[in-house]
Computed example of a mutant assay.
Amino acid sequence: MSHRGTHSDLHSEQGALAGEHPGRAANPVIKVHDIAWLEFQKPDLAKSQIFAHAFGFTTTLQTADELHLRGSDASAPCVIIRKGLRETYLGAAFTAADASDVLRLAGATGSHAGKLPEALGGIGVALRDPSGALVRVVADTHVLPALPAQAPHTHNAGHDVVRTNVMQRPPREPANVQRLGHVVLQSTKYVETLNWYLEHLGLIVSDFKYFDGQRDRGPTMSFIRCDRGRTPTDHHTLAMTLGPRNRYVHSAYQVADLDALAAGGEYLLDHGYHRSWGIGRHIEGSQIFDYWRDPDGFLVEHFTDGDMFDCTLEPGWSPMTASGLAQWGPPATNDFLGISPSRESLRELTSMVSALRADNEFDLARLRGLLKVASS
């Protein structure tokens, strides 16, 4: 299949140079269709549910040991939280085209495919990526019927008047989450882990980022989408970045429009929750975004108006900078960048020493590149 040149604009200066990473595997085992859900462990499910409802989720299952949360789209739950002693990201599930792909992947990896719990239905195979994160690939799961969704507002754009004698009054209420959009992970074995996802799940790269002055050493971040041929998919379903430890960075959930996002943000502020960064519009993916900390410190994002790409676009390449994270909006905060005083930033700092001593892709030059990002 031939591919069109890179998406070129003000921010992605060019595509790959000769010999650089192609951004896709030549012959992947399967090609997943989408991300299905994320799995977390948290000690207080009641507290998690209160925030989830304020953020815009709906509960589909609640027991003493497990909480399932969904958006309004017809789908499986998009977040599963299990009760445990400490706050932990467990992993992600991806939807296969059909059950035969689950079996094919299980056979190729020497793994066992089996039935999922009755609350989810279908079959799945559980794998571990090179960074140790759980990766499920599932098929034939129960599809929960769609719920009533927030309707996008009707806008008078410039002189194009489509709303007359009707006032605009977005209610200050939770933004109705429609679906899970993507998850961002950090890895000490970035290239190895990236290649694993491309080869096993058939994902393809939309954009590569590299540390300033280190392009010759290869990329250090990638925004990765599903390959569904000519059917457009989210600019990124998974994003990965190189860092001193393996960890969850954030996850993102689609809402109807800017009014839903902004009014939902006011609702969260009214209820005492912490905005990490926003509102703004990203560069890679173009989403309008708003980032929040949940009560356990996990970073979660509301987004709307994201880019959709088909299989024909090749990766863009650009340097990784803090100022390059958004087209407009407030500067990226220290909290979002992970450098404000906190338990997580202390763990990140202390892990830098151990990472430099370990057998991985994070070395002294990469550390210097990472430290430059926050001030660039």
Rank of each mutant, 00 (worst) to 15 (best):
D140N: 08
Y273Q: 08
A239Y: 02
L325E: 10
W317M: 06
R163L: 14
A97G: 10
T333P: 09
L269H: 13
D310A: 13
F208W: 03
D101N: 06
W328Y: 15
I30V: 13
L349D: 01
L367F: 01
R281N: 03
R86T: 11
G280M: 13
S111F: 06
F51N: 06
P319F: 02
T60K: 14
R136T: 01
T164Y: 15
W328E: 15
T220M: 09
E266T: 10
M1V: 13
D270E: 14
R82W: 02
G122Y: 07
P43N: 05
F40G: 01
I279A: 08
V162L: 11
L120P: 01
S376T: 13
A322D: 12
H302G: 04
F223R: 02
A262D: 00
V249S: 07
L371D: 01
P315S: 14
H302K: 12
P174D: 12
L180Q: 00
V79W: 03
V353P: 00
A16N: 10
T164G: 04
V184S: 09
Q254C: 00
G114N: 14
L180S: 02
V161A: 05
Y273F: 14
V125Q: 01
H282A: 08
R343V: 15
R24T: 09
V183D: 00
D359R: 02
P130R: 09
P170G: 09
D296T: 02
F289N: 00
Y197K: 04
H21C: 06
W328R: 15
M352F: 00
T88E: 04
F303Y: 15
R230F: 11
D294H: 06
T321P: 06
G278N: 07
F289P: 00
T88H: 01
T141V: 09
L61F: 04
A151H: 14
G324R: 10
H236P: 02
V205E: 09
Q168V: 15
A126E: 15
